[in-house]
């Protein structure tokens, strides 16, 4: 069994659900899945101009791991551009800074304020829930 992936911290999720090419000669139905942590790596390294070590500390992972995530992120974006594919943002192995909880039954994401006593999904009342940022 492979070693489980340590969750990567993402400060804020991408503000888009995806990118679509336009004006293409042949529309491709395929898409590339950009994970939240890959978006975060690109943001920290190329937008915030951080070096890999600082960025890796911020995401709670080692520098080589960050370098690998960053590399796959660039490969995915390059593939989407060259092969005119859509980019979709996907959750991946990330956790948010805020305490979001995911319902495995109906896929709703929610918070549990202190005033709420029972840990159930507010939509479907299911108890099959998981904290998104549990390490």
């Amino acid at each position: 069994m492979p070693r489980r992936k340590r969750l990567r911290k993402v400060v804020s999720p991408p503000g888009f659900k995806g990118y679509k090419p336009y004006g293409t000669s042949s529309p491709s139905k395929d898409h590339v899945e950009l994970l939240y942590e890959e978006y975060e790596a690109i943001k920290l390294v190329d937008y915030d101009m951080m070096n890999h070590l600082d960025a890796s500390k911020l995401m709670g992972i080692s520098r080589p791991t960050l370098a690998r995530i960053y590399k796959t992120a660039r490969m995915k974006i390059a593939r989407a551009l060259v092969e005119t594919k859509e980019i979709k943002s996907v959750f991946g192995n990330a956790w948010m800074e805020k305490d979001w909880i995911l319902c495995n039954n109906c896929n709703a994401k929610f918070t549990l304020p202190k005033t709420v006593k029972e840990a159930i999904c507010p939509i479907c009342k299911s108890t099959n829930i998981n904290a998104l940022n549990k390490s």
């Binding site: 896929n107 709703a108 929610f110 202190k114």
Partner: peptide, 8 residues
């Protein structure tokens, strides 16, 4: 202490 729910 208001509960937030996200439906996508």
């Amino acid at each position: 202490n208001i509960q937030m729910v996200i439906l996508e």
